[in-house]
Design a protein around this nucleic acid. Structure first.
Length: 693
RNA sequence: GCGCCUGUAGCUCAGUUGGAUAGAGCAUCGGCCUUCUAAGCCGGUGGUCGCAGGUUCGAGUCCUGCCAGGCGCGCCA
């Protein structure tokens, strides 16, 4: 396998590919385990194998001898020097037939490291021959729910983090071979929609026709109205007390909306769906699409909730409170252990049905998740909501079965679900999962997760840049929370507009050199803007609070998406120039032959070739770690690292002007590999590489 | 009160199951564009890894305690 590029370059199909570094490492592990047993009588299973910080030490390092020495001492009391143990292990491994293919030699270093040097030419050849992305077609269906923005106003960058994170998880899972369905839950019956309706009814009275006549951006209009309603409830003082009479109007609207009939419900329906259309447009700018959008109204009206309710009653996991603080409610009781937190201020139990009969979000969510895993014996009716330019259709649930269309894929029926929801909702999500478990105690539920992530806040500097007013005590804080009620936040479309404008300016500044036409300029600027915002939101680990800094988010330099895109684009340029010069780009490794490649890689002047190749070899393992941790920042940082090596390589070596034909051929193989690695890694983040920029 | 998260360079953050000399970006100082795109490259400055114990051949990483900050615990979602 490892030398396929020399024997039949380029012929390896996706089917016969295995990530060679991973399989090499696991083969090596089991051989080292065997070596420990053979040389000491004690077996160390699954020994640690590291990539050393400094590749001059080795390609792989194994500190197993330290572990072994400890175990020997524990077992027999005998003190053995790790270095002697390592020497014995290396001696055993070097016997013929014991080393996995792809390893050149072993060494003992330091106090007892087993150092491994790879057959670098073989690794390079295998990489060039195969796609580093796994292509297995798994049968498991994963339902990823993300975005789920209240459809009552424009999305801000906090919502964007959710969507970009979720969308990247989708791409990563698909790259890892999973079938994925993307769901965007629409909370069209909640308080937030009701508040905008209250605004249209009482704060600035509009008829439905007048609302329909409001020009786009409608979601911006609602953004302002929503924040004004928040102040209006407090009689004009944002920090004041809510006026009960006005709150009654909200409750009235909510009830009307839940009843799903009458002019108020009709207005809410229009407001929610028009905001949803705006949301889909915003998300599509970032390349984010959905498969199906279940609406809360249908979860209620199509009796998903009542089914779940009965199931939980039968399971005894929900209780009616006849008296006490929660009199008249149906609650899920907290665990014994948690009940200790119950006091006057904090109730440990979770209310699923309020005393007025309305179902809380947690209750509806339980019903929704049971449906996702096919544990409720009914389905929604669906209609087409929107068709994307590539023909993909996003479906939405509809209350009217007769209006339903049936020519869609089978929705739901997941083997597990992943819900991208911010960490602030962990408490409720724990109850939701417990509720689902209580009636569907199976591995599908256990394997399902609430994928949590921290909030996006604003820096004081960002608020000043954006002209958002701050109170004096707020100026001392490290970040300022966004607030829809206060209308404080950076709208997603505004950020994208700024990014595209900045990117276009950059593109235009080099129009003389690059000579691209107008329409290409805009397309490039768009791709760069998306690269910038997506990378910015993904480079932080999920549990890091992002203090949104406008300057940093708008930066195209350093650890930023456009930097990575640029490094890949430079490789495009090299290939373009090479083609112009008539250089043979076909099968460079095959032309050189294995021995010549080994010789070239070992040469002093080519010392910085191998680290580039080696990093590329680590893509599958990086992708696996990313998928296992559902942590896109891992592969985001990997891509940046690859881009750094690319730019260094670009600067140090002139591929086009290289006079040694063999050396040039090797360089061509390497930059081809790096380019594909960059493109593949960025693809999992939803970032494209333009042809030029 | 209870629970979760965080504390690493001036700032923002990485740091795989404990492994060899703790990294990156930004900022700052100094170099590099008649040479495949300077959205770049090279170099300098910058660290008691919150504090104190403990485990270990080895701790930023594991354990205990403490300090500081953030979030959550609603008949909102």
């Amino acid at each position: 396998m490892v030398d396929s590029a020399f024997s039949h370059a380029g012929s390896a199909g996706p089917g016969d590919f295995r990530p060679m570094l991973d399989s090499l490492t696991s083969a090596l592990k089991s051989q080292i385990a065997a070596a420990t047993e053979a040389t000491s009588g004690l077996r160390v299973d699954d020994p640690v194998i590291d990539v050393p910080r400094d590749l001059a030490h080795a390609d792989l390092a194994c500190p197993v001898a330290f572990d072994l020495a400890k175990r020997i001492k524990t077992a027999t009391g005998e003190k053995r020097a790790p270095r002697d143990l390592a020497t014995a292990i290396v001696g055993w491994l070097q016997e013929p037939g014991r080393l996995p293919a792809g390893i050149a030699r072993l060494d003992v270093a330091g106090a007892g490291y087993v150092n491994v040097f790879l057959d670098r030419a073989a690794i390079l050849a295998a990489l060039v021959a195969g796609s580093p992305m796994t292509t297995t077609d798994g049968a498991e269906k994963v339902i990823v729910e993300h975005t789920s923005v209240n459809p009552n106003k424009a999305a801000h960058i906090g919502h964007l983090r959710n969507s970009v994170l979720g969308d990247s998880i989708v791409r990563i899972l698909r790259a890892a071979g999973h079938r994925v369905e993307i769901q965007n839950y629409i909370d069209n019956t909640g308080v937030q929609v009701a508040d905008v309706v209250v605004g249209f009814l009482h704060l600035e009275p509009h008829t439905l026709d007048e609302i329909k006549a409001i020009p786009d951006p409608f979601d911006y209009y609602c953004w302002d109205l929503y924040s004004r309603v928040g102040v209006w409830y407090r009689d004009g003082n944002a920090e004041g007390r809510e006026n009960p009479e006005k709150l009654a109007l909200r409750a009235e609207a909510q009830h009307a909306i839940e009843s799903a009939s009458g002019p108020i419900a009709e207005m809410a329906e229009y407001v929610a769906m028009r905001n949803l259309e705006a949301l889909l447009r915003t998300m599509y700018r970032l390349g984010i699409t959905y498969d199906v959008m279940p609406r809360e109204s249908e979860v209620l009206q199509s009796n998903f909730w009542s089914d779940a309710f009965e199931m939980m009653k039968a399971a005894g996991s929900i209780h009616y409170e006849a008296d006490g603080k929660h009199a008249g409610c149906w609650v899920m009781r907290a665990e014994e252990a948690d009940a200790s937190t119950d006091d006057d201020d904090f109730a440990a139990d979770k209310i699923l049905v309020k005393s007025n009969g309305l179902v809380t979000y947690a209750g509806k969510d339980i019903a929704y998740h049971l449906w996702k895993l096919n544990r409720i014996d009914r389905d929604f009716s669906y209609r087409r909501f929107h068709e994307y330019p590539d023909g993909h259709v996003v479906w939405i649930t509809t209350p009217d079965p007769s209006a339903g269309e049936t020519d869609h894929a089978r929705f739901g029926h997941g083997d597990r679900y992943i819900n991208v929801i911010d960490v602030g909702q962990s408490y409720v999500q724990d109850f939701v999962k417990k509720g689902v478990m209580s009636v569907a105690n199976d591995p599908k539920v256990a394997a399902s997760t609430h994928l949590d992530y921290e909030k996006v806040g604003l820096t004081v500097a960002a608020c000043d840049d954006l002209g958002l007013p701050l109170a004096d005590d707020e100026r001392k804080r490290t970040f300022i929370g966004m607030s829809g009620r206060k209308g404080r936040g950076v709208k997603a479309d505004d950020l994208l507009d700024m990014l595209e404008q900045n990117a276009l300016a950059e593109v235009r500044s080099r129009v003389e050199k690059m000579n691209y036409p107008e329409d290409e300029q805009a397309a490039i600027a768009h791709t760069i803007a998306i690269g910038a915002v997506r990378y910015f939101l993904l480079k932080f680990s999920r549990n890091a609070v992002i203090a949104f800094d406008l300057k940093e988010a708008l930066s195209f330099q350093g650890e930023a998406g456009p930097y990575i895109q640029y490094s890949a684009v430079r490789l495009n340029s090299i290939f373009a120039k090479l083609r112009d010069a008539g250089v043979d780009l076909d099968d460079p490794l095959g032309r050189l032959g294995r021995d010549r490649v080994t010789e070239l890689l070992a040469a002093e002047e080519n010392a910085d070739f191998w680290p580039v190749v080696y990093l590329c070899a680590q893509l599958p393992e990086t992708l696996a770690r990313t998928a296992a941790g559902l942590e896109p920042s891992i592969i985001a940082r990997y891509a940046f690292q690859a881009a750094q090596l690319t730019n260094e390589f670009y600067h140090r070596h002139q591929v086009r002007n290289e006079t040694d034909a063999d050396r040039q051929a090797l360089m061509i193989a390497i930059i081809g590999l790096v380019q594909r690695t960059l493109v593949d890694a960025l693809a999992t983040l939803g970032i494209d590489v333009p042809e030029r920029m």
